[in-house]
Amino acid sequence: MLAYLARRITYALIMVVLVSFVGFLIIDLPPGDFLTQKLAELQSRGDRSAELRIAEYRARYGLDKPLLTRYWIWATHFITGDFGESFQYERPVSDLLSQRLMMTAVLAIATLAITWLVAIPIGVYSAVHQYSLGDQIFTTISFIGLGMPGFLLALIILFFAAVILKQDIGGLFSRQYQDAPWSIGKVIDLLKHLWIPALIGSVTGAAGLIRIMRGNLLDTLGQPFVEAARARGLPNRTVVWKHAVRVAINPLIVILGSEALPSIIGGNALVAMVLNLPTTGPLFVQALQTQDMYLAGTGLVFYTIFLLIGNLLADLALAWADPRIRLG
């Protein structure tokens, strides 16, 4: 077991290094860099000392050095917790991240909780009552949820809230609480705003999950062991939940692992941009667009790390849940 863990962690580390390097390379690929844009911007404003200042920046950020050297400096600093400086915000990447990470995590966890609490029971209901009216309704809804992109749903909800309810629902806080210290009022205000992005994320997430849960459970309900359990005189509820769902849910553990943790850092960037949420998603999208090297690279590495941890945890959870894949 320990040997297995050690091996998995070693592979993960190699993976992180590879991803960070390739990611760094790709971000650097487009011609020019962040400062070329900045220079053009300053010159267009008629700033005469622009050339000089840009050269200064270039030296400060190490952009005058070759790619490999830059990667080496960034990577070695990364290990010590210094992720470099964002060009655009002119602040350390770690500051920017820690500021937004909390809210992103809160939102991601809320979304996940709603998604699973809704999707699993509905999926089970749909499978057990296959082709019933309830199943048809849920199936229709889940197909709509699958087909509709999250940002479109966000736009629709924004429109309804603004035009019909006359409510400001963008962001995560009302204006008066934006910079206020934490208090009960601020928490309540957060909850008032949080449910909307959480709901949007859940609708799209739950739709797919319902389909998977329903399909898996239908397969399982057709298995001989379900009939055998019923023939032993177990009540229907026990047959469905203890025997069928318990087996049918195993593949979902993998989905939980590979989606849940990465979503804490990635979130749903498009929805977050539409709703103007202070989460990490929009931050990274912007960083990638403006070639804000260190911010974008750090985001990528964190996303990878979370994904790898998620997969490892999922594999461990799966082994715990399913004796067939337990290691000898």
């Binding site: 318990r246 087996v247 399913d322």
Partner: peptide, 14 residues
């Protein structure tokens, strides 16, 4: 009580 044709899959695997 009843026993079935497919002993391979008549027990809940978990």
């Amino acid at each position: 009580a009843m026993i079935f044709q497919e002993p391979m899959s008549s027990l809940t695997p978990v």
